[in-house]
Write a protein that binds this DNA or RNA. Structure first.
Lengths: 226, 226
DNA sequence: ACAATAACTCGTACATTGTACGATAAATAT
DNA sequence: ATATTTATCGTACAATGTACGAGTTATTGT
């Protein structure tokens, strides 16, 4: 009957003069977002529920909905929060455009890998300010490098596609590389059917960084103005 | 009280001698899978629920669970069903490896675009027989083309990454290209912040096929043995 | 022929989710 | 003081995946 929580501290009661709220500053969009990122990092995409999020914030579930319209918004905000890019100011070094592009794309990939849930969310939501900034930046780099306006969009999307594919794939694998091992084993059993990829142990290959850089190089080679 | 469904035909009753079950052949994995694909095509990934699926099959929800362990399995099966590849027998034409590779990859992409829900599922489940077949095939093509064993895995994954990134992105966009338009509009309002991608109307570009082919070409150029 | 067993179907029940709807309370404006 | 805005949150509900076990039908063993 009595308190359902064995009454530890019925959440959020504070009349006048008490300890400064144990450690709950008032709810805010920022607090929600950073906590959401923590939760996503810890529990993955399935692990983020409004209830858990509220718990971590020491708040009631429905309080979240004053700051946020739907759960989707939380994802959007968390995603964008993870994608900001601090780099040298936009328009200085006209020299090493290739290096600049590579740096920016690898940093982008690294940011997503640091939060494996983020990669698979991004394609659905290309709209956040931080990701637009990155696209703008890339656009400028290529433009300054001499890529014709007619080819600019194709160039950007090619790079986008490559980075996203690589990152989503790796992030999903990371989530469960025992799956990967299991698959390679199953694959061995079927080696008559898949002799080539069995022999090269495709599913166990792990030089992802190397492979990424190599393919990226090829793309940039092709895209750079002759 | 009486029949909850205004009693059209209380599901699954048939004693002796009746019309051959109106059109419900017995439940089976295959029937479940093809119906799941239909449902996914019609309603998208969120639209597939066990209840809806069972309804479409004229069966009770829990009947599905005799043929399938978890909902995840339905996704896996539907995904693989959509990815099979019928092409010229594996080992004939030693000439046009580039054309062969392009054909296979574009067909793969097209298959996924025909079922926009499929692309985003694939990275999580690289294991189905049909997708393994495709990887095997690609492997053989590249191998026959003279790609050294040391570079084979990197080559395959580069192509995989590119194809997946391109397809996931496009499939997500297709789902909601009004979002895209809205974003471009929002972008116009912010044209001081994102001048370059605003000017090139990046988010409205729609020569996806062209861009895809171009980038793919660059990758193959880079990957082909000198 | 009949009994036993396997193959299959499905209703009920439950825990978990997102969130609509007000009822509060606190801060601020009038 | 009173009214309004800002913020919090409990209750309630509908939708979901699926555990459990009771049914039914088909197959097999004798």
């Amino acid at each position: 009957m009595a308190a359902k929580n064995s009454g530890a501290r019925s959440k959020r009661t504070r009349r006048t003069s008490e300890r400064p709220p144990p450690q709950e500053p008032p709810l805010s969009r920022e607090r929600i977002v950073t906590t959401a990122v923590e939760l996503l990092d810890a529990q993955g995409i399935e692990g983020l529920t409004m209830r858990r999020l509220a718990d971590r914030l020491g708040a009631g579930v429905m309080s979240l909905y004053w700051h946020v319209d739907k759960k989707e918004d939380v994802f959007d905000l968390a995603l964008d929060a993870v994608l900001d890019y601090r780099a040298s100011p936009p328009g200085n070094e006209p020299q090493d455009w290739r290096g600049e592009a590579i740096h920016m794309l690898e940093d982008w990939r690294a940011s997503m890998l640091r939060h494996p849930w983020s990669a698979s969310l991004l394609p659905r939501r290309v709209l956040g300010p931080n990701i637009l900034s990155r696209l703008e930046r890339l656009s400028q780099i290529l433009s300054r490098a001499g890529v014709a306006d007619t080819n600019l969009n194709a160039a950007i999307w090619s790079l986008w596609n490559y980075v996203m594919g690589a990152t989503i794939t790796l992030a999903s694998f990371d989530v469960s590389d025992d799956d990967r091992a299991a698959a390679q084993q199953r694959l061995t059993r079927l080696s008559e059917r898949y002799p080539t990829i069995e022999r090269s142990r495709l599913l166990l290959d792990d030089d992802w960084n190397g492979a990424f850089r190599k393919g990226l190089g090829f793309l940039l080679d092709g895209l750079s103005p002759k």
